[in-house]
Design a protein around this nucleic acid. Structure first.
Lengths: 258, 258
DNA sequence: CGCCGGTTTGATACTAATCAAGTTAAGTGG
DNA sequence: CCACTTAACTTGATTAGTATCAAACCGGCG
């Protein structure tokens, strides 16, 4: 991997490339552009702040772009800043001494990133795809949280959701077969991108390599490949490119999740 | 299992049997006995409340005793009340349609119990041992949380810790061998009972049956039994009774955790 | 004593890991 | 544009680890 990977500072005056369509809905130029996006979505950590709080927060936030593979935070290292994922996917992982690795969570936009109120990271965070982060220094956010219970409440809601997801995944790791694990992973990705319907056709790009998928599911890369091939042979999934996936019938996939 | 299991109401005037030694430190009889205990420990959900708040909370709390095996809350059923575990161990589990089961968490005293801010339970909660719970109706606690940010902060801290534990366990489920899983389980129990030292001798009772341990580790009961026998043969553990465990050297056990 | 649930131990089957080889896709430089 | 390189992926053969099936054991209790 390129040693110079990641950490491209973005010019705050020229963010058009990283803002999603919702940006067009916002016209109040007093509110910093970085947070317009989260407010527009009513998601992310900025949604519960008023204008002056947003302004205060904006003074300390910084938009940064990282390319896929960049390590964003390391397990057992000091927490220096928190962030909101604005674009892309971040994988959270833990490793054993001998190198065995387990991915313990995936963060999609507009998820919050960072272990609140702790001096050390509990996990390693790595950019799975190219990502844009809205970073804020640890003390600045913690001050804001102390003054704004609604912000802590919002972060509490995300933490509870992450706990639900972690426990759901524990069932997959502990009790499902390799085939069911792959089906569950595909179903999770498909529904995460569009939480609405649970049946019908879905087309998407996998945000992870086969190796990442293996680390997420507690399998080897060979088993991931074999089980994917098996699901393809059964027409549960159509693999149109190495990362391009088509699910003809989400209901049929769900039946394979165990 | 006895159908009438559990739900023994306790006479609030006669709680001596379930209060721990710390109760003796408390003499203000205006504060309900139920919450004296949590306040004395500076743990549990009552620790951040002032006297009048404690009094308000006490009007709606109820101490209940349940015997081992009692289902305290069912997955996908409405959340009716929250609780604090005052004594004993509660197991949180999820089941697949075909009956495969996974334990996704253990709650020890004085942990908080219940999925905050959700209409439905995400997991099934069952008393692993005889337990005493300090129950509070959902609306009462949520009102108190809304008025008292410090209480939400305390619950946030527990939620974050539970998330850390869940992710730690995901590594065990996904990447460790059966033998390492058993060692990790024993180590977790041993250190949970006495969080201080990480080396030396430990003696304790297992709060779970072999079947529960299997469901916690994603193994079968036979594999649990075999691996325990193997660790016993290697003198890593001494099994003095079906539930009574002695760890001669916690450091040696830790080496087996992977 | 004999039953019963929980546990241990043994024999065999099967799933997924490991080891190994080949294939595809995406660059990279001539 | 094409040979070459490389990483990511797929497929095959074999092995190892755990599940499954089966039987015996143990402690508590009617």
């Amino acid at each position: 991997m390129d040693i110079r990977a990641g950490i491209t500072e973005l010019d705050p005056g020229n963010l058009s490339g990283i803002m999603d369509a919702s940006r067009k809905d916002i016209h109040n130029s007093d509110i910093p552009v970085l947070c317009q996006s989260c407010e527009a979505r009513h998601k992310g950590m900025c949604g519960v702040l008023n204008s002056s709080e947003l302004l205060a927060l904006a003074r300390s936030t910084r938009m940064v772009r990282h390319e896929a593979g960049t390590e964003l935070a390391a397990e057992a290292m000091p927490v220096e800043s928190y962030a909101n994922v604005m674009r892309g996917v971040v994988k959270l992982s833990k490793v054993l001494e001998d190198g065995r690795q387990q991915i313990v969570g995936l963060q999609f936009a507009p998820d919050f990133l960072g272990r609140l109120f702790s001096k050390e990271n509990a996990v390693t965070a790595e950019a799975a795809s190219d990502v844009d982060l809205c970073r804020v220094p640890k003390p600045a956010l913690e001050r804001l949280i102390a003054e704004n219970p609604a912000l802590e409440h919002r972060l509490m809601q995300q933490t509870l959701r992450e706990l639900d997801e972690a426990r759901e995944w524990m069932v997959t790791l502990g009790r499902k077969t390799a085939s069911e694990k792959i089906a569950s992973f595909l179903y999770m990705i498909a529904t995460h991108l569009d939480p609405a319907a649970t049946v019908g056709r879905r087309v998407f790009d996998l945000p992870l390599t086969r190796s990442d998928i293996a680390d997420f599911l507690g399998l080897t890369i060979e088993t991931v490949s074999r089980q994917l091939s098996k699901l393809r042979a059964e027409r549960i999934v159509v693999i149109t490119g190495i990362r391009h996936i088509e699910i003809p019938d989400l209901g049929a996939l769900k039946k394979r999740c165990g």
